[in-house]
């Protein structure tokens, strides 16, 4: 792909700052889908159970922007390690932030505890201390790349942004680009139901980023949960997270 050297007019508000990255990010919001579908023009991946977070990597530092939470960076000191996994600077990732329990399953409770500790400043380890990190471990699954080398990728089609993301992010045990599948959304939905996911993300491969409603560029599709009574062999799978 061609990498732009100058930013195009962005659908984002800039504050006067030395940073190349925007002070405020207006996210693209998914449309609620009715049910799983097959379409070779769409990319299907799990709707990871966590909070949506934008991860800004600039000058060797990592900042987080989460919806309605402002800056939860201090509650997740271990995310500073993202710097070492990203092969470029001036990067903004669109990601899902989760907290995994001791068995590696995403835990809403642990996530809320982390966020609450950050807000109230009641952590015994002081601000930004390690006190919060003893409960579960933070994990990031990146799904989109918004900025690269300080330049917005908003005009690129999603497929190309995703390709850039895969090339940019060195996968680690706690931070990686999510696994996704093109085309057979109904099959992926079935598989997600078995694993206990509640929803499926369907993104149109040729759609650029647009702030606000995504219209047909991105759907959040509910997934029907698999029957609760699992065949005995699933005990094997249940040892895995989720």
């Amino acid at each position: 792909m061609t990498r732009r050297t100058t930013g195009e007019p962005l659908p984002l508000q800039f504050a006067p700052t030395a940073s190349r990255l925007p002070e405020r990010i207006v996210p693209m919001r998914p449309t609620d889908g009715e049910g799983p579908f097959d379409d070779p023009g769409y990319f299907f991946e799990p709707w990871w159970p966590g909070i949506r977070a934008f991860v800004l990597v600039e000058d060797g530092a990592v900042r987080l922007r989460a919806e309605a939470l402002g800056d939860p960076t201090a509650a997740f000191p271990e995310l500073a390690g993202v710097v070492e996994l990203v092969r470029a600077d001036g990067v903004v990732l669109d990601a899902t932030l989760m907290v995994l329990d001791a068995r590696g399953r995403p835990s809403r409770t642990l996530l809320d505890q982390r966020l609450a500790g950050e807000g109230g400043g009641c952590g015994s380890g002081g601000p930004g201390g390690r006190a919060g990190t003893s409960r579960g471990s933070a994990a990031l699954v990146a799904s989109d790349l918004l900025y690269l080398e300080g330049t917005s990728l908003a005009a690129l089609p999603f497929g190309e942004r995703r390709g850039e993301l895969a090339a940019l992010l060195r996968p680690s045990s706690w931070c990686l680009a999510g696994r996704g599948f093109i085309g057979d959304g109904t099959t992926v939905a079935t598989a997600l139901g078995v694993l206990g996911f509640r929803a499926l993300s369907a993104r149109r491969l040729d759609a650029p980023l647009r702030p606000g409603s995504a219209r047909d560029a991105w759907y959040r599709v509910p997934v029907v949960a698999a029957p609760r009574e699992l065949p005995p062999f699933l005990a094997v799978i249940r040892r895995l997270p989720l």
Binding site: G104, S173, W174, L195, I237, L240, P241
Partner: peptide
């Protein structure tokens, strides 16, 4: 309580296996 490595990777592997199984079934 720090996790042993490979937790997210395990999730991805479980996802992969599940999708492959669903494809085969279909």
């Amino acid at each position: 309580e720090a996790p042993v490595g490979g937790q997210l990777v395990d999730l991805m592997a479980a996802l992969e296996a599940s999708v492959n199984a669903a494809r085969t079934a279909r």
